[in-house]
Amino acid sequence: MALNRDFVGRTFPPGEPYEVSRVKIREFADAIGDRNPIYRDPEAAKAAGHPDVIAPPTFPIVVSLGNPALADPALGLNYAMVVHGEQRFEHVRPIRPGDAVVCTSTVTEIRSIGNNEKMVIETEIRTTDGELVCKTYNTIVERGA
C-alpha cells in the first residue's frame, strides 16, 4: 500500500530522554558477542583515551528504535511487511554511560520502487544539553503484496 507522502519533511519531536548505563552497554556488547574490554572495563576505556566505557558503533539503534514516525496510523505502514533496507551512523563521539539522550527524527524520503515502498528517516541523537552525539539514517522497505 502506498505510504502517505504528506509525511515527507515532517519532523517528530523528542520523547522522554534515554539514560545510557554501563549495564545496558555491556548487555548490548554481550548480545552481539563482542568481548572488547572498552565496552566493559572503565580502566581499559581510559587507557584508550575515553573518560568511561563506550557503546559499540551500532548501539544508537537501541536509542532510536520505536520511532514515532512509524507508529502514526496515518502513514499507512503495514509493519508485518517491513524489512530493514539500509542503516548508517555518523558518530560525533561515542555514546557513554551517563548520557541522557533524545532523538529528533525527520522523514526525508518516501518513494515507490517497483511494488515496494521505501522510506528514509534521519534522526539526530543529542544529549539533553543539546550536544549532537550521533546522526542516523534509517531506510525501511515495505514489501508489496
Partner: peptide, 25 residues
Amino acid sequence: MAQGGRYVTDWAGDPGAVVDYGVRF
C-alpha cells in the same frame, strides 16, 4: 551489521575510532 562493526573495531583496536558506518541489507 553489528558483526561487521565488530570486525572493524577488532581491527582498529578502539571502537571509538569508527566515526561513520553504513550498510545496505
